[in-house]
Amino acid sequence: MATVRSVEKLVLMVVDVQAGVMQECENAAQTIANVARTVERARAAQVPVIWVQHESDELKRDSDAWQWVPALVPAAGEARVYKQFNSSFEQTNTDELLAQAGVSHIVLAGAQSNWCIRATAYGALERGYDLTLVKDAHTTSDLDLGNGTRIDAATIVRDLNVTMKWLQYPGRRNAVAAAEEVVFGGTGGNS
């Protein structure tokens, strides 16, 4: 059973907006700009930012592909998480970082929508966090199903936005909001 948190404290989690990930993503330039704008707004509201970076055979640590895109630079003191699985929670220190900060609500942005963003969103909700997905600050690439069928990236992004708007977990709130609509002040998040 999930631990539902009653105190409303936000964090912005930026997942995998790395050079090697973004090179084939749809609408990458606009998505990166929206992520950067969300980071800027979170910092202005003194909301912590956690940077999650994926490692794999294709994204070797410290390689050019593994680096953040040039438009995004973690600030001194902002937490970094290194992961090897889709979810930002699996075999990482994410839970500990969130607990230390007293976080109850995650604002989520990054890549790729159908893999690491979806897995992280479900991981957050299953652990009792409220969640706001930044609907114009996540992206992916087309998915080739191998039999001549493709699912285009825009459909994948739209599907996750719809899912996160209507999905329900007991005692938790989840929502979607555009980069300019995310509420970082007051009671936080969007409902």
Rank of each mutant, 00 (worst) to 15 (best):
A2N: 12
R5E: 01
R5I: 04
S6Q: 14
S6G: 03
V7E: 14
E8D: 07
K9P: 02
V14K: 06
G20I: 06
V21N: 09
V21L: 12
M22K: 09
Q23W: 07
Q23E: 14
E26R: 12
T31D: 01
R37S: 13
V39P: 01
R43G: 01
A44M: 04
Q46G: 00
V47G: 00
V47W: 00
P48M: 01
I50R: 03
I50Y: 08
E55T: 15
K60C: 07
K60D: 02
D64C: 00
D64A: 15
D64V: 13
D64S: 14
V69H: 09
P70L: 09
P70T: 08
A71H: 08
V73Y: 02
V81W: 04
K83V: 10
S87H: 05
S87L: 08
Q91W: 09
T94E: 01
Q100L: 07
H105R: 15
I106E: 02
L108V: 05
L108E: 07
A109V: 12
A109T: 15
A111R: 04
Q112I: 11
N114A: 08
W115G: 12
W115C: 14
R118V: 04
L125M: 13
L125F: 03
L131G: 06
L133V: 11
L133I: 10
A137W: 05
A137E: 07
H138I: 06
T140F: 07
D142Q: 08
D142G: 11
L143P: 06
L143M: 15
L145N: 12
T149W: 09
T149D: 13
I151Y: 06
A154D: 14
I156L: 15
V157M: 12
N161I: 02
T163M: 13
W166R: 13
Q168F: 05
Q168G: 06
N174F: 01
N174G: 05
A175L: 02
A178E: 11
E180R: 13
E181P: 00
G186P: 03
G188D: 03
G189Y: 01
